[in-house]
Design a protein around this nucleic acid. Structure first.
Lengths: 149, 149
DNA sequence: GGAAGGTGGTTAAAAGTGGGGAAAAGTGGG
DNA sequence: CCCACTTTTCCCCACTTTTAACCACCTTCC
């Protein structure tokens, strides 16, 4: 039930952002023409998060019902969340226009990396992605070992 | 429930990868035309794992519920898993196109070995497969002895 | 010697990228 | 409040590279 209707973006792609801040979404990730997205910088500005409006609702719904978060914190969180998130749509060539300010925040320019995830994908600065990849590899191998992959 | 719809790939085949990174899937392993696969390097880059999207979901579901893995590690694991996995489909000749970067990671070129498994199969570098085979034989014979095979 | 499995190569289609120009949206002045 | 002007957005066309569909051949095994 928790995964049945959820898309999953597989793989990693190296594409470029042009002078108009457009980025081509990998053809395999496209659903149809002029797909809608919510674009949002990751909390520590490491990368951009891109997801469908449905996925965004699902995610914020999870924050709504988490018992470990106080009512006050929740209110602040949601104000921040909605102010940081931006709306975007793909053009007929399958390109997404990224807001200028978000690109600056996560230092996106020229060659970038699109990273698949469950229900969403990420857009990374090339160098930063390499570093993160190296740092996360031991954890990945450890968990893979535990679950017998 | 956990095995009923799970395919079983039997045997070992020595096929070749051509200059376009295409590899013929053994005829006995084929289901129909243009079958879909998820391709994924083994955690320590020993070989490639190939499975159906269903099997992939099943496998990642196992990680979701394992109590030995912390929430933090789980998040990192999933990010890595989805970025490493790639979509692939067989052509009408029953050949699978392997992503260039994955081939490099596990050193696949020319003659390779396809190894059957439960719900998935593996693609090995020829020399490495020979070595692993020899190393694993005593363990196999020991267990076979224990269970009286 | 026929059929099926595996391999190689050519060609057509699709994906990724860049740029020009029309439409739309925002801005200021009369 | 309307009009002119600037700026932004988005749609379309053109080009290059990559991908995948198709065709043909060789080998092996009944």
């Amino acid at each position: 039930m928790h995964t049945s209707d959820q898309r999953f973006y597989a793989g990693e792609f190296r594409h470029s952002i042009d002078e108009k801040n457009r980025i081509t979404i990998p053809a395999r990730w496209r659903r149809g023409d002029t797909e809608e997205f919510i674009i949002l910088p990751e909390a520590t500005h490491q990368f951009l998060l891109v997801m469908s409006p449905e996925e965004f609702s699902r995610m914020s719904g999870a924050a709504e019902s988490d018992p470990n978060v106080s009512a006050r914190d929740r209110r602040i969180f949601f104000r921040q969340l909605h102010s940081r998130a931006q709306h975007g749509a793909a053009d007929k060539q399958g390109r997404l226009v990224l807001p200028e300010d978000l690109c600056k925040k996560v230092e996106l320019k020229g060659e970038v990396v699109l990273v698949g995830g469950r229900g969403r994908f990420e857009i990374w600065n090339l160098q930063r992605r390499k570093r993160a990849q190296e740092e996360e590899t031991p954890t990945y191998q450890h968990v893979a070992n535990v679950i017998g992959l």
